[in-house]
Amino acid sequence: MILILGMLLDAALGEPRWLWSRVPHPAVLMGRLIGWCDTKFNKGNHKRLMGFMTIAELCVAAAALGWLIQLVPGYALDVIFLAILLAQKSLVDHVQAVGDALRLSLGDARRSVAMIVGRDTKDMDAPAVARSAIESAAENLSDGVIAPIFWFAMAGLPGLLVYKITNTADSMIGYRTQKHEEFGWAAAKLDDLLNLIPARLTAALIWAVTSRAGFAKIMREAPLHRSPNAGWPEAAMAHGLGIALSGPRSYDGEIREYPFVNSDGKRALDADDIDRSVTVLWKTWGLTLLLVLAIAVIR
Score class of each variant (00 low, 15 high):
His94Thr: 13
Val95Glu: 12
Val95Asp: 09
Val95Phe: 04
Gln96Ala: 15
Gln96Tyr: 03
Gln96Thr: 03
Ala97Trp: 01
Ala97Gln: 07
Val98His: 01
Val98Pro: 01
Val98Gly: 01
Gly99Trp: 12
Asp100Leu: 15
Leu102Asp: 09
Leu102Met: 14
Leu102Ala: 13
Leu102Phe: 13
Arg103Val: 12
Arg103Phe: 01
Arg103Asp: 04
Leu104Trp: 01
Leu104His: 13
Leu104Gly: 13
Ser105Val: 10
Asp108Cys: 11
Asp108Ile: 07
Asp108Met: 11
Asp108Thr: 09
Asp108Ala: 15
Ala109Thr: 00
Ala109Cys: 04
Ala109Asp: 05
Ala109Met: 10
Arg110Ala: 09
Arg110Lys: 15
Arg110Thr: 02
Arg110Asn: 01
Arg110Ile: 00
Arg110Met: 12
Arg111Trp: 07
Arg111Phe: 08
Arg111Ile: 00
Ser112Tyr: 02
Ser112Asp: 03
Ser112Asn: 09
Ser112Pro: 00
Ala114Tyr: 09
Ala114Gln: 05
Met115Thr: 01
Met115Glu: 15
Met115Asn: 00
Arg119Phe: 11
Arg119His: 07
Arg119Asp: 04
Asp120Cys: 05
Asp120Asn: 14
Asp120Leu: 08
Asp120Met: 10
Asp120Phe: 12
Asp120Ala: 12
Thr121Tyr: 08
Thr121Asp: 05
Thr121Trp: 10
Lys122Trp: 14
Lys122Met: 08
Asp123Tyr: 07
Asp123Met: 09
Met124Tyr: 06
Met124Asp: 03
Asp125Asn: 15
Asp125Gln: 13
Asp125Glu: 14
Ala126His: 04
Ala126Ile: 03
Ala126Trp: 07
Ala126Lys: 02
Pro127His: 10
Ala128Met: 11
Val129Ser: 05
Val129Cys: 03
Val129Leu: 03
Val129Asn: 02
Ala130Trp: 12
Ala130Asn: 12
Ala130Met: 04
Ala130Arg: 09
Arg131Met: 00
Ser132Pro: 00
Ser132Met: 09
Ser132Asn: 04
Ser132Lys: 07
Ser132Phe: 00
Ala133Trp: 04
Ala133Arg: 07
Ala133Pro: 04
Ile134Leu: 07
Glu135Thr: 04
Glu135Asn: 04
Glu135Met: 04
